[in-house]
């Protein structure tokens, strides 16, 4: 009995912080302004502007996730074997930005990338043509990669260091070269971490509106921006909630994937 009392605050938190808001979103999502039941808000995802924003968000999230993966996996391999990595110092350095407010980090990129920003000043100074990627999808992808890379590195690194060193040595011992060891042993054994990392990078990238606002300058309209717009300036909470419910499908799919590949909770950082 007494143990149940201790879980009370957490249950209350879950109720007020997660379950009730979800219920409210669901309610708004399936009603119109007058409170009548409707599927219009959910169907709205298929209309031109919304559909385009969803596709663009999916594409940019996909690109940024692939880039993150291409950086994080080799990095994990290097950190795993390096002496510095063992002490966690290098990992710490790569994870450090994660503890800084991510709006600040994104704004920093804005300052760096601006037309007369630091990068272009330096480029101009050494006589190179200036870079015009601010307010383009490329800048948004850059921001996503920068913001979500640590979330990718950590689970992959965790999965990699858990692989028994003897198992890798056994593969070499049995005649496998580096590529075969990677292909047949290391990658299959780090799948939980990879899946976890992909989800941690993909879902926030897909739903972001801050990164696209700051680095897209209003010219890159993602589904997150549309939802934000409906809740704020658009004041159409019902439509915003309906689109949010659609986004939730992607989150549920991601969670299901983690559940499937990460049964032992290996790659999880939470």
């Amino acid at each position: 009995m007494s143990k149940k009392i201790f879980s009370g605050p957490f249950l209350a938190f879950m109720l007020c912080g997660t379950i009730i808001p979800l219920g409210v979103i669901a309610y708004y999502g399936i009603t119109d302004r007058s409170g009548a039941f409707t599927f219009e808000n959910i169907k709205a995802i298929t209309t031109g502007e919304h559909w385009e924003a969803l596709m663009l968000a999916l594409m940019l999230a996909l690109i940024s996730t692939v880039i993150c993966l291409l950086i994080a996996f080799p990095l994990g391999l290097i950190l795993k074997d390096s002496k510095l990595g063992k002490k966690g110092f290098m990992v710490f350095i790569f994870i450090l930005p994660m503890w800084m407010n991510f709006l600040l980090r994104t704004m920093a990129w804005q300052v760096l990338l601006e037309k007369n920003g630091i990068i272009n000043q330096v480029l101009g100074f050494i006589g190179l043509p200036s870079l015009h990627i601010i307010n383009t999808p490329a800048a948004v992808v850059l921001g996503m990669v920068y913001d979500y890379l640590p979330f990718m590195i950590l689970p992959i690194y965790n999965a990699l260091i858990k692989i028994d060193k003897n198992v890798i040595e056994a593969a070499y011992d049995l005649g496998a070269g580096f590529r075969q060891v990677l292909q047949k042993v290391i990658i299959p054994l780090s799948v939980p971490g990879i899946v976890s990392g992909i989800t941690m990078g993909f879902v926030p990238s897909l739903t972001t509106f801050a990164v696209s606002n700051i680095l897209g300058g209003g010219k890159v309209n993602l589904i997150g921006n549309i939802i934000e717009h409906e809740f704020t300036t658009g004041s159409n909470w019902n439509l915003g909630a309906g689109l949010s419910l659609v986004m939730m499908i992607f989150i549920v799919i991601s969670m299901a994937l983690i559940e499937k590949f990460d049964r032992n909770g290996e790659g999880n950082i939470i």
Binding site: V167, D173, L189
Partner: peptide, 28 residues
């Protein structure tokens, strides 16, 4: 190591957990 005509049996077995028994034996 992969170029030597020498094979090792490790202290903690070091079987490949992602493969079944036949695949483990067939690896080399």
């Amino acid at each position: 190591p992969n170029k030597r005509q020498i094979n090792t049996v490790f202290q903690k077995y070091a079987l490949f957990p992602n493969m079944n028994i036949a695949e483990n034996i067939a690896f080399g």
